Simulated scan of single mutants.
Amino acid sequence: MQVDGEMYAVAGPAVSPGPIHLIVEQFPAHLPEGLAVWRDGGRLRSTDWQIDLTRAAVYAPRLPGPSELQLAAPVLRAMRERLEIPEDLSRYWEPVRRAVAAGELTAARELLEGRGGGLTPTGDDVLAGILLVHAWRGDDPGELAEVAHAAATTNLSRSFLAWAARGQSLAPVHDLVDRAAAGDRFGFDRAAATVSAIGGSSGVALLWGIGLAATATGGGAAITRWRAGAGPPVRSRP
């Protein structure tokens, strides 16, 4: 829902925290399409329910810095090599790869924006992963924000992209990078499985964007130990 220019995704406690997620103990019983919702002081209200925002903890994940991203990059590249190209983006994939490798984010946005299926289109999820990596490596925040806000897509997707441009995503995404940088294989495998299971294809597409941008970012750490086993249980698209 969009209220006073802010986007909220209201969800129950089973959903991972994220920058636009409003996690509630009990989900409102009545949320019909087009329901009027407004801010009333510290409350989010409709005609039938209200949510007290004053007791809500603000989501503020720790963002990886350039040095941590450098450590994580080889692991993220190895992860990417196990992913299948999203079917609904296959015809655009090679130009997307070239644009990301060259650091041409506007070109990547134009190729990806609004493409594919899902509540957040597949292309937008890939673009979000790309923006996250560029934010973590310290690229100009204003330029990243311009790429996100210019995306020709839904308000929901654009909101996710705007937060990605600030370096924020769902909690398991941050855990994924932290575990990769720390050399925690078990934790990385678990985080990769969690992210890949998000939505019908959103999580895998997000991993694709992170992997593509991490490849362009570089990083020279050895990855032999990550390839020794089966690797993270990343779910590919059918």
Rank of each mutant, 00 (worst) to 15 (best):
L207T: 06
V10T: 09
A162D: 14
R158M: 03
D189Y: 14
R80W: 08
E94C: 01
R179K: 14
V204N: 09
A145L: 14
F27M: 15
F160E: 12
R77N: 08
T224F: 00
R225M: 07
W49I: 11
V133P: 13
G12A: 12
I223C: 05
P28R: 03
L176S: 09
T224I: 08
V15G: 01
A162S: 15
V3P: 10
A181D: 08
A101T: 12
A182D: 14
I198P: 06
A205K: 03
R39I: 01
A57T: 15
R115C: 02
D48I: 10
A216K: 02
R97Q: 14
V3K: 04
D48Y: 10
G103T: 05
V75W: 02
W38Q: 08
A151C: 06
Q50P: 09
P17S: 10
D189N: 13
G229N: 11
D125I: 04
G42R: 12
S236K: 11
G187I: 10
I51K: 02
S90C: 04
V100Q: 01
G209S: 00
D4W: 04
G41L: 08
M7L: 13
L156P: 01
E87M: 11
T122C: 07
I198K: 01
E84T: 10
T154R: 10
R80A: 15
R91A: 14
A73S: 15
A162W: 03
T120A: 05
G65P: 04
F188Y: 14
A180W: 00
A164F: 04
A14G: 03
R97Y: 11
S196D: 01
L144Q: 05
I20C: 13
G138H: 09
L53Y: 05
S236P: 06
E146I: 07
L132F: 02
P172H: 13
A135F: 07
S157V: 04
A214D: 02
G209N: 01
P64V: 08
L131I: 09
D52A: 12
P32H: 05
E87K: 13
I20D: 12
P66I: 12
L76N: 10
A36C: 03
P32C: 08
L53N: 10
Q70P: 00
A152M: 10
L83P: 02
G200F: 12
R80I: 07
A36P: 11
P233S: 09
V100E: 07
G103A: 05
R179I: 00
P172I: 09
G183A: 08
G220D: 15
D184K: 04
I85L: 11
M1V: 14
G138M: 10
A213I: 01
L207R: 07
L127C: 03
A182N: 06
A228Y: 01
P61S: 06
G218K: 00
V177C: 08
S202N: 05
A60T: 08
L89W: 04
I51G: 00
P86G: 06
L71V: 02
I85H: 04
I223P: 00
A193P: 05
T194Y: 01
L161K: 13
